[in-house]
Write a protein that binds this DNA or RNA. Structure first.
Length: 278
DNA sequence: CACTTGACCTGTCCGC
DNA sequence: TGCGGACAGGTCAAGT
């Protein structure tokens, strides 16, 4: 599942290999993968200038003020096949769209569950997009702090802290994996109401969130099922995860079997001893 | 208004 | 083996 570290890994990978390349052709195998409006056809003849990320949203900017927004949702992938690093298995049955470049590179948009979306729009409209404008602060930004977290959480005093972290209006880029991981790192029970968080807990969480995200970034993200980076490679974070995907296994810190329950409609893993509700 | 649930989709795994 | 159902979990619309 692509969250902030995964999307950022894709962003840097594509940036390295696709900047200054010009679109020559496209295919659209599942029309609903592109939101109504401008077609992928509009990109033909335009050259990639830059890559941006807003939370889990990736934006590719082209010449002449055109942009492509890509939200991968659950199972989306953006994988680049080039003559020097070909991916012979692509396209496959999950390929929904492709962009070909004059360099002979092809960018494959794969999406098993078809939840992901591509949007072509004028570059100035990216910053006006409702999803973009409603995002909370980016926790990997150097300005992130206990104060920023506290102000962000203040929007949702009635929610559990995990539900608040999953809301992209609170902070941008956290999903189910890193919400659980950060709450363990801060030793906070996921069900703790935002209004009940103590100052030391908020301080611990403000440290834990960027620490977990940056550690995941350094390991190339998490591959639980579908995630692959721009070169088709898996991420290694889950090999050393604290709680996500480890229900029933002993806590790395205290040895207690990790528990799992449904919170905010999502599977939630935690250590019942290290993360006590108080 | 604040919060929860269902829809969107496909694939895998589990119990009967 | 076959088959129904639970589960995986991001976002938005609809429901409570």
């Amino acid at each position: 599942v692509p969250e902030l570290p995964e999307v950022e890994t894709i962003r840097t990978g594509l940036s390295k290999h696709l900047t200054n390349q010009t679109v020559s052709a496209f295919t659209l195998l599942w029309p609903n993968s592109v939101t109504p409006g401008l077609s992928l056809d509009s990109l033909i003849g335009h050259t990639v200038t830059s890559f941006r990320r807003f939370g889990k949203l990736l934006v590719i900017d082209f010449t002449d003020d055109l942009s492509l927004m890509a939200h991968l949702r659950m199972t989306g992938q953006l994988i680049l096949s080039t003559p020097t690093a070909p991916i012979p298995t692509l396209p496959d049955r999950t390929t929904r769209a492709t962009l070909s470049f004059t360099s002979s590179a092809t960018l494959f948009f794969n999406d098993q569950r078809k939840f992901g979306r591509l949007t072509v729009l004028p570059t100035p409209e990216v910053l006006l997009d409702p999803f973009v404008t409603s995002l909370g602060p980016d926790p990997t930004d150097p300005s992130f702090s206990t104060r920023v977290l506290t102000q962000a959480l203040a929007h949702h005093p009635g929610l559990s802290v995990k539900a608040a972290l999953l809301d992209q209006h609170t902070l941008a880029g956290i999903g189910n994996i890193y919400a659980d991981e950060a709450l363990f790192a801060a030793r906070i029970h996921p069900s703790t109401p935002v209004s009940a968080l103590t100052t030391p807990q908020r301080r611990a969480l403000a440290t834990a969130i960027p620490a977990v995200l940056n550690r995941a970034l350094s390991l190339g993200g998490s591959t639980s099922r579908n995630y692959l980076n721009a070169l088709g490679q898996r991420g290694a974070y889950l090999d050393t995860a604290s709680v996500y995907g480890r229900a029933g296994l002993p806590c790395h810190s205290c040895g207690t079997p990790l528990a799992k329950f449904a919170l905010a409609g999502r599977g939630t893993s935690f250590c019942p001893r290290c993360q006590r509700l108080r």
